[in-house]
């Protein structure tokens, strides 16, 4: 038994009429963990907001180079969007499977989440490589600097999420679902949904508004 967190004291109140469901009692652990992680995610979203602001300001500063209409292909973006949305959905289903102690279904959900996330990342890297091959490098204009910074930051978050997900899967295979596993996976699920949320902003502001006449 590792160090007991004071928040778990609420256990001792069971049956006394002061359970965690009353408005007065201490909040259960996962609610506090959830809130803390939620605040972290919101701060992360504020970081993304500053990158969005930079992109929105610089989107027409192409320095005579390729602009968004010449570069973006919506087919690839639609595929990326579908991958990320399905990945988020698979993550939500895995979360349900974990709550129901369905280990096999949980691992299948994790695998689907990971595979779809990795597919998204592959598509994005291919798109970046295609841009670079056409001479649209981050150095060539303020528009492209802002584009690579914003979309690249999201891609970096996805990469970190995939590593985190692999770690969680390994932990589950090695140790099973321990007492803290639920809140750990919960944080990952929030993180993954938040990245999908940011992607909505990216495909709307960068890609769809970028190809408008």
């Amino acid at each position: 038994m590792t160090a007991t967190v004071p928040l778990d004291d609420s256990d001792q109140l069971a049956g006394t009429g002061f359970e965690v469901h009353s408005d007065e009692g201490a909040a259960p652990r996962e609610e506090v963990v959830g809130f803390g992680f939620w605040v972290f995610l919101l701060s992360d979203i504020v970081i993304f907001a500053s990158f969005f602001a930079a992109y929105a300001v610089l989107r027409n500063s192409t320095a005579g180079g390729a602009d968004s209409r010449a570069l973006f292909s919506l087919g690839n973006v639609a595929l990326e969007t579908l991958c990320l949305l399905l990945s988020s959905y698979a993550c939500a289903l895995a979360h349900v499977a974990l709550a129901r102690r369905a280990a096999a279904a949980f691992l299948i959900g994790l695998a689907a989440t990971f595979a779809l996330g990795a597919l998204f990342l592959t598509l994005e890297i291919r798109e970046f490589a295609d841009f670079l091959a056409r001479g649209a490098t981050p150095q060539s204009s303020a528009f492209l600097s802002a584009f690579f910074a914003l979309v690249g930051l999201h891609g970096a978050h996805i990469s970190a999420g995939l590593i985190w997900l692999a770690g969680l899967a390994a932990l589950f295979v090695l140790q099973g679902s321990g007492a803290r596993y639920g809140s750990r996976f919960f944080c990952f699920a929030l993180y993954w949904h938040a990245l999908d949320l940011v992607w909505i902003g990216i495909f709307t502001v960068v890609y769809l508004m970028g190809v408008l006449p």
């Binding site: 259960p28 996962e30 949305l85 349900v96 709550a99 639920g182 809140s183």
Partner: peptide, 25 residues
């Protein structure tokens, strides 16, 4: 309790969670 991990209060009925995720999707 450790698995009751949504930002919100736990859903009472089993099956509800899948329906919610699928509706959202």
């Amino acid at each position: 309790r450790d698995h009751r991990t949504t930002l919100g209060p736990q859903q009472e009925r089993p099956g509800n969670e899948i329906a919610i995720a699928t509706t959202g999707f």
